[in-house]
Simulated scan of single mutants.
Amino acid sequence: MYLLLLPSLLLLFLVVAYPTIYGFVISVREMRLTRPGLNGWVGIKHYVAMMSDRVFWISLKNTAIWVAAAVTIEMTLGFIAAVALNRNLPGTKLFGVLILLPYFLPNVVAGHMWALLLDPRLGVINDILVQLGLLSSYKAWFADPNTALAATILVEAWHGFPFFALLFLAGLKGIPEDLYKAAAVDGAGSFTKFRLITLPMLKTVITAAVILRVISLVNSPDLLLVLTGGGPGNSTQV
């Protein structure tokens, strides 16, 4: 049996283990492609330098806020959208297409679109907020260290919540309607049905969706980079 597993284990080692081990090995060496003679073992020098770098800790904090806030908002909006689409009311198919549109937009396109919408001189959102009296003057959302990260998180939430909506809708479609009917006969209200039926049945879907989205946000902060480039200062550096 172990001989049959050997090809798979070898493939896993070559694809997963070897690159990981090699990455750690080169992290404890000084690698200068232009001056090979200076290459050599430096131990944890790079890690010490990283830990003593103020920007590293700022970026770590921003990354935690960026991921946690974006996933929370996206998951909430996605669940609300999925529940609405699952009711099969008139117009839900069109509503479903409109909900999915943001996720189909490339990050660069979405980033530049929102940069224009929130532009401090020409942005239509600033104009609406001023007209409603919520702002006294146009605001440079991405140029203010106090609002830049929050603004990018909201843009990311708008762009990413259809991912959760799509997975949650698939999960809701897989829950037998008989469970809700039986619960209703037993006198269960909407909140009880949600707590005892919907959440447990969606637990696997929720876990998988959150893990995939966290990986995506950590690995690809391109929307944030398009909007702010990590600035102003290091307020949105991740």
Rank of each mutant, 00 (worst) to 15 (best):
F56N: 04
G133I: 09
L122N: 07
W66M: 02
V25Y: 13
T20L: 15
I58W: 02
S27W: 02
K93E: 11
N146A: 15
G37I: 02
S137R: 12
T92P: 05
N39M: 12
K139E: 13
T76M: 10
I99G: 01
S136N: 14
T34G: 08
R121D: 12
S59A: 15
I125V: 13
V42I: 15
L38G: 07
A17H: 06
E30T: 07
L4G: 01
L101V: 12
W114F: 11
R121H: 12
T76K: 01
F79W: 09
P19N: 05
G133R: 08
A64D: 05
A70T: 15
R35F: 14
A143R: 02
H112N: 04
D53L: 10
A68C: 08
L89P: 00
L12G: 06
F95M: 02
L122D: 03
V48W: 10
S8Q: 05
S52D: 13
L77V: 13
A68M: 10
Q131P: 01
P7V: 05
V42K: 06
K61F: 10
L5I: 03
G133V: 08
V15H: 03
A17S: 08
S59I: 03
G78P: 07
I44Y: 07
L85I: 13
L85K: 03
R35T: 14
W41I: 13
L60V: 09
K139L: 10
S27Q: 02
T63S: 15
L134W: 15
V71K: 01
E74D: 11
W41T: 08
G96V: 12
F79G: 03
L85W: 07
Y22P: 00
A84L: 12
I26V: 14
A110Q: 02
V83W: 09
W41C: 06
I65W: 04
V25Q: 11
L134I: 12
L135S: 06
P19A: 07
H46Q: 08
N39R: 06
V16F: 14
Y47T: 13
P106L: 05
G91P: 07
V130I: 09
G123Q: 00
N39S: 11
Y18G: 01
G123K: 00
G43I: 09
L10K: 02
L33M: 10
W66E: 00
M31C: 09
I125R: 03
I125M: 07
G123C: 01
L14G: 06
I73E: 01
P36D: 03
A115L: 09
K61R: 15
L10E: 01
L105I: 10
G123F: 02
T147S: 14
L98F: 14
T63M: 12
M75N: 11
R32S: 14
L38N: 08
E30F: 11
M51C: 08
M31A: 10
F79H: 04
P19W: 06
A115I: 00
L6G: 03
I21C: 00
S52T: 15
D119P: 00
M31V: 15
S27M: 05
G43W: 08
W141T: 04
L6M: 11
T147R: 10
E30I: 03
A140D: 15
M50H: 07
V28C: 05
L60W: 05
N107R: 10
S52N: 11
H46R: 06
I99V: 15
